[in-house]
Design a protein around this nucleic acid. Structure first.
Lengths: 191, 191
DNA sequence: GTGCGGATGTGAGTGTCGTCAACATTGCGG
DNA sequence: CCGCAATGTTGACGACACTCACATCCGCAC
């Protein structure tokens, strides 16, 4: 934690932390490498000693985001069993996206390195968690497909809300709507 | 269509068309206003006579994209009635996203003007189409929620595929998977 | 026809960005 | 204690979005 000096101590972690602060403060703005360096009291070129380019920093941020998203989900429902628990998870997912839009967009942006081991592992963990939930809470003969579908459902809800494609509404109303949507999808039958 | 001359004839439409060509050719690249102007054989400042800023051009492009997406959907299934027809629409939605990733990302990007009448109308048209489909093909006591859910489901599938969060696979396998996912979601029951 | 005004396109300029190369400083192993 | 690799800085380049003063041209009144 040596604050001053020519050398920094742990610049990579500081950059990631700083960048996440900036995303939290202004989720809509472009996250420029220079701005992050400025805020970290470091020259614009310093980050290049630790990240090959801007996307690499964004990928590192995304990896942290995946872990925090998974933590949010498991914190809300460590052992989901019922359809209601499932709806809780959907609400948690959408809440995460709307509470931290900048981070969420970095996590699911184009151009990020699809093959970074951190990212792949984190995404796999989310998928595995969802699959386990579905196994426990749903009755279906294609659990993998339902797990994918549930992920797509909450992911789509999150993005549609984020992009203002659904009517803007206060958080409580949104929670109710997410719940209703999940419930309706799970009880709808073909004609 | 006067090709030469100081004045252009219809620069706004030319810019939108040119930009969409560029998105089609390289869906992953950033669409810079200067590059579009260059390709349209026009100075970098010319677009500003017709669009207040870059986002306005992107919004115009997005509006066209919405119309084309809706056209794709209705072309595939003008009068969907069965669950299978619904799955066809899901496939068409995901196909659109993967066939024209650049355009799809512009359509659902942050920063675009949420309040542009064109955009709002186009989005409403898609939602209305979906609602009508659900009304016809599904049995549920909350058709609006199911319509939102179906949109979120296909939208989420599209984005997860686009971002490589699901295993990459050839188009035929993807089609089968989208079908299976929709079918599984519609037949899954809570335990 | 002629000329004039507004619409449209141009050129040069500002500030920011990502990235790089050459140089400066420092911590650490021999 | 010294030298080297790791780390940070400075200055630069090209591209970008956007602005403003200026150039050109179309359409319309007369």
């Amino acid at each position: 934690m040596a604050e001053r000096g020519y050398h920094h101590g742990d610049l990579p972690a500081t950059l990631v932390r700083t960048a996440m602060e900036m995303l939290a403060e202004d989720g809509g703005a472009e996250l420029s490498l220079r701005a992050v360096a400025r805020r970290a009291k470091v020259s614009p070129a310093a980050p290049y000693r630790h990240f090959p380019d801007r996307m690499a920093l964004l990928s590192a941020i995304a990896a942290v985001g995946y872990r925090e998203l998974l933590a949010d989900l498991t914190a809300r429902q460590p052992e989901p069993k019922t359809a209601d628990d499932l709806a809780d998870l959907a609400v948690a997912y959408v809440d995460f996206a709307l509470a931290r839009p900048g981070l969420f967009r970095v996590m699911f942006a184009e151009g990020c390195d699809r093959t970074s081991p951190d990212r792949v592992a984190a995404v796999a963990a989310i998928h595995a968690f969802l699959a386990a939930v579905v196994e426990r809470a749903m009755r279906t003969d294609d659990p993998a497909a339902v797990a994918t579908g549930m992920w797509a459902l909450v992911h789509g809800l999150a993005f549609l809300h984020l992009d203002g494609k659904l009517d803007a509404e206060p958080a409580a109303a949104r929670t109710a709507r997410v719940r209703a949507t999940v419930a309706a999808m799970l009880s709808a039958r073909t004609r």
